[in-house]
Each structure stands twice: as structure tokens, then as C-alpha cells.
């Protein structure tokens, strides 16, 4: 036993620090998340431990229900949108043309900009007296007047959530583009040529060749992006602060109301929602691939 230990001492010494760090933090996070969620807070002070009243309060509160629906809408809109924009941009740069490298670099730019900076640009553009407001009220000569009066985007629920979705899609399109591009490049070109000699049109080639062969990469985009959308915090937090999604609600309870118990309870529910959503998505994707791939 001791001999074995000595023989493997390098292995143990090299692996131990990283494992202790990660597993240690994992245990601490999981333990405190659970403990906090079972603790009630009154006025920033812990009151009772070991009760599930946080969860009961949450399920009965309208703020949580609203936040849940907003998050669901956020997920259901931003995920397919990212798939569509990613697919379009990936197909655009999938052929070889002059200046392709430059175009690809420009399309990757949103990934290189810190998220908080993206939100700050959107705040500047959409705030009162910003470019978009002036554009829509027809103050620039080249654009027709759409609205009679300037509206405040961030104080209107639909616009604020829409703005957060726009920011999220703008920033994360390059990620789905890269994944889908890798999938597109794996499709053998002779399949398209064969289809063309048999007289297939562009649309047919897309639905019968591209789509079925792209299912693995489409599936990974949908799963990865929907998980990201569930836990989104920064975009809704900056752009729709008055209409919290679940992530923003966690911040509200933690920072503004000094109630870590509630925010931990939401955090745990968020984890379960992500698990459920991923499972549903998996079932749907399996059914879809059975429907699309006809052997």
C-alpha cells in the first residue's frame, strides 16, 4: 500500500490541488446554497433554519410567477433566434469569396466585447434622446416617421424584454455561428452536386440535405443556448431592471432586500428548471431527428 503510494506520488501531488480546489468549492457552494434556501431572513438577519417556507412563499408570490413567465419567454424567443441568426451567418461565410477572413473577423467582434459594454452601448442607443428614439420619431431626414412621440424603451415591459433578447442574440450569435459552421463544413460537397444533377432546387437541397445532416450541431446549439438563456443575468438586469427575470430576481432579493434565503431558493429552482428544460429539449430533438432523417 505504502509502496503503491510512493510510486504514484507524482500523480497524487499533481492532481490533488486542482481536485481539492474544485471539489471543495463544489461542496461549499452546494451546501450553502441548500442551507441558505432553507433559512428565512427578516430585515437582513437569519431567523429560522431548516424550514421550507422560502419555497412556499415563492410559489405563492406573483413576482416569482411573473419572473418565471418572462424567463420562459426570454428562453423561447432568444434560443430559436440565435439558431436562425447563427445559421444565416454560418451559411453566408461557408462559401469561399474574396475577403472572407475579414468578414468572419467582423462577425466574431461581438464575442470580443465584454457583455457589460454591450449593454452600455444598448442603453446609450435606446435611452431617451438616443439614436433609436430620434430615428423612429422621424428626426433624421433619411428615415420615415414611425412614432409620433418618443417612448421610453426601458420602462415598457415588452420593449425592455425585447431589448434584452436583442442584446443577448447580438452578443451570442458568433458562438452558434462557429458551432454551425463546423457542422456545415463536415457536409460532403458531392451530396449537393448529386442532388443538383437530379434537379433539386436550393430549398430542397436545404431541407433534404443540409437540415438532416446538421441535426447534431443544431441540437448542441439549442441545448447550450437555452441553458445560457435560462441563467441570463446581465442583459435583463441592465436593460429591463423593472421587469425582472429569474436571474434578476435573485439579485433583487440578495442586494436590495438583503434576503439571501429567497435568492438561494430561486437559485435552486433555476437549476431544476434548467434540468427539466434540457430533458424536454432532448426528447423533442430525438423525435425531430426521427422525423427528418429518413433512411
Amino acid at each position: 500500500m505504502l509502496k503503491n503510494l510512493k510510486k504514484n506520488s507524482f500523480l497524487i501531488w499533481s492532481l490533488a490541488p486542482a481536485c481539492i480546489f474544485i471539489i471543495g468549492f463544489f461542496v461549499i457552494i452546494a451546501f450553502f446554497l441548500l442551507k441558505l434556501s432553507l433559512t428565512t431572513y427578516v430585515g437582513g438577519m437569519p431567523q429560522e433554519t431548516g424550514v421550507i417556507s422560502n419555497y412556499i412563499t415563492l410559489i405563492n408570490s406573483s413576482a416569482f410567477k411573473d419572473a418565471f413567465w418572462r424567463t420562459l419567454i426570454f428562453v423561447l424567443t432568444s434560443t430559436p433566434l440565435q439558431l436562425i441568426t447563427g445559421l444565416i451567418t454560418a451559411m453566408l461565410i461557408n462559401k469561399s469569396f474574396h475577403g472572407r477572413g475579414v468578414v468572419r473577423s467582423v462577425l466574431l467582434l461581438p464575442l470580443a466585447i465584454p457583455t457589460i459594454v454591450t449593454t452600455s452601448i444598448l442603453v446609450l442607443m435606446f435611452s431617451k434622446g438616443g439614436h433609436i428614439g430620434s430615428l423612429l420619431t422621424g428626426q433624421y431626414s433619411f428615415f420615415p416617421q414611425v412614432m409620433a412621440k418618443e417612448i421610453s424603451f426601458m420602462n415598457n415591459e415588452a420593449f425592455a424584454i425585447g431589448l434584452a433578447i436583442f442584446g443577448k442574440v447580438w452578443r451570442d450569435t458568433p458562438i452558434s455561428m462557429l458551432i454551425l459552421l463546423a457542422g456545415l463544413q463536415q457536409i460532403p460537397q458531392d451530396q449537393y452536386e448529386a442532388a443538383e444533377t437530379m434537379g433539386s432546387k436550393l430549398v430542397q437541397s436545404f431541407t433534404y440535405i443540409t437540415l438532416p445532416l446538421m441535426i447534431p450541431s443544431i441540437a448542441s446549439v439549442l441545448v447550450l443556448r437555452s441553458v445560457e438563456a435560462w441563467k441570463e443575468f446581465i442583459f435583463p438586469y441592465i436593460l429591463a431592471p423593472s421587469f425582472p427575470v429569474l436571474g434578476v430576481l435573485i439579485e433583487n432579493f440578495y442586494v436590495q432586500q438583503l434576503n439571501p434565503g429567497m435568492s438561494a431558493a430561486i437559485g435552486i429552482m433555476l437549476i431544476f428548471l434548467i434540468l427539466i428544460c434540457t430533458w424536454v429539449l432532448k426528447v423533442v430533438l430525438e423525435a425531430a431527428s426521427k422525423f427528418l432523417v429518413k433512411v
Binding site: F26, I250, E251, Y254, A264, I274
Partner: peptide, 16 residues
């Protein structure tokens, strides 16, 4: 185990 730490959403682990 090493990769599983990323399964907890940032916003959930931020609280503890």
C-alpha cells in the same frame, strides 16, 4: 467532477 462545477449557473453559485 472538474467540469461539473460549470453545471451550476453562475447566478445561482454567486449567492453562496
Amino acid at each position: 467532477f472538474i467540469l461539473s462545477i460549470r453545471l451550476i449557473p453562475d447566478i445561482s453559485s454567486a449567492v453562496p
